[in-house]
Amino acid sequence: MNDVLDVALRLLVVFVVFLTFPLIVGQTEHKVMAHMQGRLGPMYAGGFHGWAQLIADGVKFAQKEDVVPAGADRRIFQLAPAVALLPYLLVLLAIPIGPGEGAVGQVLDAGVFFVLAVMGVGVLGSLMAGWASANKFSLLGGLRTAAQLLSYELPMLLTAASVAMAAGTVSLVGILDAFEWWWLPWQITGALVFFIAGLAELQRPPFDMPVADSEIIFGAYTEYTGLRFALFLLAEYAGIVVLCGLTTVLFLGGWHGPWGADGLGWVWTLLKTAVLAFVVIWLRVTYPRMREDQLQKFSWTLLVPLSLAQIALTGVVKVVFL
């Protein structure tokens, strides 16, 4: 009985995190983006600096009519948002935020593999949405999504492999146990490549060609309204949380910090994740969208060689110095 309670509690906590953290990131994005553009952002919803804006948005989405285009493939069209959203929920289960058994949803032996594998499934949602909408813009968006995923999955995997080599394990908890501060300069290239490739997989600006509104309206999500559209948006922000959490765990040492690592490890994890989420928003505000061919070229001619170099460096250091 105690086990059941324990599992239920963990699932509940992960679910609550899954529902609240993306909203926090979204609200931060509203405000940070506004101030970076000399605006104020939402100011009214909820009274204090518009803190409840996203809740208001949610209510609005829930009230909207759920439209399925006449020519669309109904079943797949309706299923797509769930396919896009669920993988991130699963990934969140495996990310440790503090030392010990108590601070991770589920300890997995092959954590890195699990996380990358399941994150790759999320893109199926965009593909299904793009194809099933019976809309040429959606189809183009789906195609671009697929092309982008294929080219950016590789550097992401390679850099994650580099960390796994350094730690001698593919378990996320194991990697954190093995972490030393000098891994930071050692794996910095890998960290940058991983983060950038992750941004591209999430289709965040400046890699948002698949949803480029000035060209293809909203890519694969053009035909969606109401709650299903909200689910896609939630998937994007959950993706930010997951990506930042993963980068923190793999490259920035998770719960390790200059001090207070014993009791306050989870604070360090959350702090690093928050800083990374801020960087995601910052990059969105600063840079213009990359063109489709630039996107592909960037991955194949820069990120892949860099990640291969990182693997070589990791191997050399591992063999020679350790």
């Binding site: 199926l124 789906g142 294929l150």
Partner: peptide, 22 residues
Amino acid sequence: AWVQVLIYVGSVVVLLLFGLML
């Protein structure tokens, strides 16, 4: 199991769908 998901679901099927849509 995870390799199955990573390679087949994550990459091969995506490639398949990509080809179909193209």
